[in-house]
Amino acid sequence: MRKVLAILLPVLLFLTACGGGGGGQSEADVYTDGKTAGAAESLESVRVTDAGDETAPTVEFDSPLTITETAARAVTEGDGAVIEAGNEVSLHLMFLNADDGTVLQDSYSEGQPQKIQVTEELKTADPVLYEVLVGTKVGAQVAYTAPIEAQEGQEASQNRLLVFKVLSAEVPPPPPEVLTPEEVAQLDDAGELPTITVGDDGVPSIEFPENEAPADLVVKVLEEGTGEEVTEADTISANYTGWSWGGEEFDSSFAGGEPIEFPLTGVIPGWTQGLSGQKVGAKVLLVIPSELAYGDAPTGGQPAGPLAFYVEIVEKAAAE
């Protein structure tokens, strides 16, 4: 599946799906008053020596960890603000093999902290993670783990221990809005939107303006569709090309010579919001802020920051 069709996984799923030890500590390093949630007794042996906000900590524990239920525990105390419900929290992550303590991956070395919003959605999806975050202070090191079930036909996955440091907790900015056609026209008249040119072969190219990308979602209809209207619940097929803001192409269906079919609930939010309400046959320029795309520091090779797409809606799948 092409990048643009991949769902931007919540950090929650990243925590449980991604994957040493070293350095001695004394019992004095254990934060006995830290918040716990779930089967936190399984994490009692976890010790963390903090090494700052830019360097992965030293983590040790009695291995192997027995992981049968989701568990979370604040291992070291923070000295910053208390995390509140509704905050957007920035984290540095470190994944370890729960059997032997070897480090599998960390965001410190990549220089890319991850963000998660402490919302009702998180509370529903992972009440243990939600519970340990709310009330914990910025600067804390938190151990988290959950059993990973093997998918059908696959061997059991290796259990992981996640240790994350809370770097900040802030009230998130208001979410991007969809600009009205009048607002889009104003930006276009001011020369602040990209210009799309479709060649004789049907393949689009783009020219970007010098300004920064708009903060909100831009839907510029280049050609009105005449077919059936598309809704968020529909599956459509479309031809498209995507560029990072500034001009670098990162994905295109035109290279394969045929449109791609996908559900509008299975793509980045900017596509879902931007294409809903359009009609089959429409040709659309989407300018998508990073909050509605893959974010400013995505994982898995997705493009960062604001994006621009040229999309031709070819067909709407028949309802099952």
Rank of each mutant, 00 (worst) to 15 (best):
I236M: 07
G281V: 09
E249A: 11
L65N: 02
W243V: 12
V287C: 09
T55P: 10
T299A: 13
I313D: 03
I83N: 10
W271F: 14
G266W: 07
P289V: 06
V166H: 01
V46T: 04
A56D: 05
P172I: 03
S253D: 03
P173F: 08
Q302P: 10
A40M: 06
L65M: 00
L96I: 00
P174L: 13
T272R: 11
L307Y: 04
K35S: 12
P263F: 08
T76M: 00
L96W: 06
L43S: 00
G78A: 10
D216E: 12
I268Q: 10
D201S: 08
L9I: 09
G19P: 12
R160I: 14
E182W: 07
V218Q: 05
A40Y: 13
A317N: 06
P174H: 10
P298S: 01
T16I: 15
D126Q: 05
E232H: 11
E54N: 15
A293V: 09
D62R: 12
L12S: 05
L222Y: 12
T68V: 13
V171M: 11
S244V: 15
P64F: 03
A28I: 02
T119D: 15
T235H: 07
P289N: 01
T231S: 11
A319N: 02
A71D: 04
Y310D: 00
G38W: 08
A318Y: 03
M1K: 07
V59M: 07
E131H: 08
G199N: 09
T226W: 01
A293G: 14
I288S: 01
Q158D: 14
Q151A: 14
T68Q: 10
L43T: 07
V184D: 03
V203F: 09
G225K: 06
L8W: 11
E212V: 09
F262D: 08
V178S: 12
L286M: 05
E291G: 05
V230N: 04
G301T: 06
T197F: 06
K137Q: 15
A146S: 10
V178N: 02
Q154V: 13
C18L: 14
I313Q: 02
T76E: 08
A215R: 09
